[in-house]
Amino acid sequence: MAIVELEKVSYAYGKSKAAQDEAISDISFKIEEGEYVGIIGHTGSGKSTLIKHLNCILKPTCGKIYIDGVDVWKNKATVAGNRQNVGLVFQYPEYQLFEETVEKDIAFGPKNLGLSADEVRFRVARAIEMVGLSSSLLGKNPFELSGGEKRRVAIAGILAMDPKILVLDEPTVGLDPAGKEKILNIIKYYNRDENRTVVHVTHSMEDIARYADKILIMNGGKILSFDSVEETFKRASMLRSVGLDVPKIYEVFLKLKDKGFDVPLNVYTIQRALEVVKNIVERKVKP
């Protein structure tokens, strides 16, 4: 059974005419449990609107949303249950911190779930470990931390709710390369080691190509394509036609092919590229 299922979901923003309003129309897709799905698309393509539906921040104008088999808008209890199942990390999540200590802030979500004090403490300890921060930070004021640390505390606040589905909206934007790597590793850990479903919205094809299983491309409020990473990049011209970049390394192999070299095209990470080139070189040397 799919853990996320959207059935002909459409959403229109009231009667407001503001330019930044995104809307989505007729969206249907399924995500299986444990999958890592990347959502990519331009600003205004509807990706932010789409993910706000996953934990009932927005109610679809029409269509149905099933999370873990439950029709989420059935009644109040299903909406509350859905917020527990789906953890949503917004853009610049560090701006939502408000408690006087890191510990209290991470505990905000679990407390809202009505967990016991012991359970909350346990969840907080686990969450701070998952995001790779020292537990000595727990007593600190979150506003004293560095930007990257603040963001990881904010993500810990979501992880402490132990969501079955973790949804992140551009979690690495504005960070330095090291900070970016740390965040990507947290997401990968939650997906691979905790075996949770991850939905990761980003502008960076290179981030997505490394860890995602599938890529969902949004364009003009509609799904342009939803397929495995390999299949998606096979249609590089489609990506370009909507102004999305393919990973640079993929471009290199595309150009090599154009030059008449017999290279495969399913190359979109450095690891894979290294394998491919070494293979060719070795094959040429041996016979």
Partner: peptide
């Protein structure tokens, strides 16, 4: 990308 293609071509060509 272009520089990379050039060098890679050289490497593969050389082989």
């Amino acid at each position: 990308v272009d520089e990379c293609v050039e060098v890679l071509a050289e490497i593969l060509e050389g082989e």
